[in-house]
Nucleic acid binder design. Sequence first.
DNA 1: TTGTAGGCGTTATCAT
DNA 2: ATGATAACGCCTACAA
Lengths: 331, 331
Amino acid sequence: MSKIQDVANLAGVSVATVSRVLNNSPKVSAKTRLNVINAVKELNYEPNLLGRNLRRSETKMILVLLQNISNPFYSKVIKGMEDYGHKNNYNVMFCNTDSNIEREKKYLDLLKNKLVDGVIFMAPEIDIYTMNTIGKNYPLIQCCEYLENSQISRVSIDNEKAAFEAVEYLIKNGHKKIGLINSKKPHQSSKDREKGYRRALYENNIQIDESLIRYESYGFKGGINAIKSFVDEKKVPDALFTVSDIIAIGAIKALKSFNFNVPDDISIIGFDNLSISSMYDPILSTVSQPRYELGNKAMELIIEIIKNKKNIIKNVVLNHQLLIRESTKKE
Amino acid sequence: MSKIQDVANLAGVSVATVSRVLNNSPKVSAKTRLNVINAVKELNYEPNLLGRNLRRSETKMILVLLQNISNPFYSKVIKGMEDYGHKNNYNVMFCNTDSNIEREKKYLDLLKNKLVDGVIFMAPEIDIYTMNTIGKNYPLIQCCEYLENSQISRVSIDNEKAAFEAVEYLIKNGHKKIGLINSKKPHQSSKDREKGYRRALYENNIQIDESLIRYESYGFKGGINAIKSFVDEKKVPDALFTVSDIIAIGAIKALKSFNFNVPDDISIIGFDNLSISSMYDPILSTVSQPRYELGNKAMELIIEIIKNKKNIIKNVVLNHQLLIRESTKKE
DNA sequence: TTGTAGGCGTTATCAT
DNA sequence: ATGATAACGCCTACAA
């Protein structure tokens, strides 16, 4: 494996000149540059970036911490991050925390150990104090999910408003007994979506019936369990808002098994517009987040912090969209 | 940000001793070790791994190249890789190639630039010659998908046999007009699955009817299109084998829209046992790959290569499983 | 058991 | 425009 000195020898120049050529410095004569380039080719030279990284004290690598990479929600967010990152010569590394705080902390060591230049959180597990402390010393951004009141910039949608609109749509279309299936885990987005649900009922003079609210695991089974418990209690809502598509799909599957028809008997609105939601039968009405843009923006913000070394706290809110499709009955 | 020298100063020892403590060298007196540890804590010292990596010329980082991280097939494979990697002090980095050869080559630079210690391919785009060449100089492994006859170790299932068994099951249960929906992209696994399909028909004395075979995009739409074309040609099979669950689900969705019942009118067997396949209605019969183990083994192999520096070509074949569920009619 | 010092491969400053 | 050389932070002979 050849190193910069070998190239220098072959080209008959100093390592400094080789380095200049490699880094596109303008102060190299055309002739020398050509010499060097030929030597590089002849030796099949590949710069050892460990040396460069140490010297420059940067890695051009961003770490993205998410709950689990296989969550379909992330796919477009990831794309948005990668695109912006690559355009700016950054590589992006995605790591699963599995909602495990120890694991998250382990990954944060990559930051402290200078192996990555910045971290984007998509589902922070650490407490707000730790997050703020790390954020004082290292570039940090929160994307989609976040700790409220933290001193760390974030980009997300307005979850409260989105939920409000979804539930209001159900109300405007004649539904009265509107249930909520929320996640057991009290993420900020879930809390906000529940707030929106409650406000929509409140502002439309519908008494909130706590027996129509369920807190379940965030997934297919959560939806199934919620429906089972509604059926058990012989009190099935005439419409449902769920904090995720995957919960909604579980709910639909369970409703079918109890011979309820969606949307004729029950309307359902999910959240996130996952690809599966348009494959399902019926195609799910849902709230769509601008996932690509969320990722893109998060990457923009972190690179900005890295470059500017200063940290102005920003709360970027992007627009969501209510998608009405087959799982909701129109009045 | 403190460095090793600061710790040494505070502890009243040399940097060598600090380094020894950090690396758990046994030749440090208990007292000195304690001193150092205290100094480390007091200064909140975090070693700069860029220095270490350069010095040791390793990063303890494995790069996994896959088509797209959001493909649900990968989720458990990824978990298997991470678990084995972490247990052996390796970090794992997953990157999307989007089936783009340029992008793949770009990521391979991380290997040449010494930023990762090895690469696992899950859907190689580069040609066999390039792969072999790189494999001569750097640790490489193929997982699930692979280039046949390459000089690079791999771990996968026996796709031909798995397909054979699936199709034979359909035959044994009374189906005669058995269609195949394959992927347009001629990946090795798809080719092998088609081989298995053909062999099953052949060995059971069923004439292969090429008009029952479709090559479509690898996804939901592929399944839909295939069914549309069968219906257009007024020649719908009485059973279908598809090379992926997601194609199978597209097919089911389309069949429903044409008022075919699965499995009463048509039996379908997919491939991969994606989580969505057990959420669907009907629950999909499919071939399950030991995805966690595939990932685990691939990681084991690459770490082995890295440690041993020698490269014995291995073809590891793990066992698949035919899962018969709701989308197939029993005779 | 501990310290000294050289070197990993690169970049960047300062001469020339 | 080019070269010599000192870092970057760490590890590890080798010496003591």
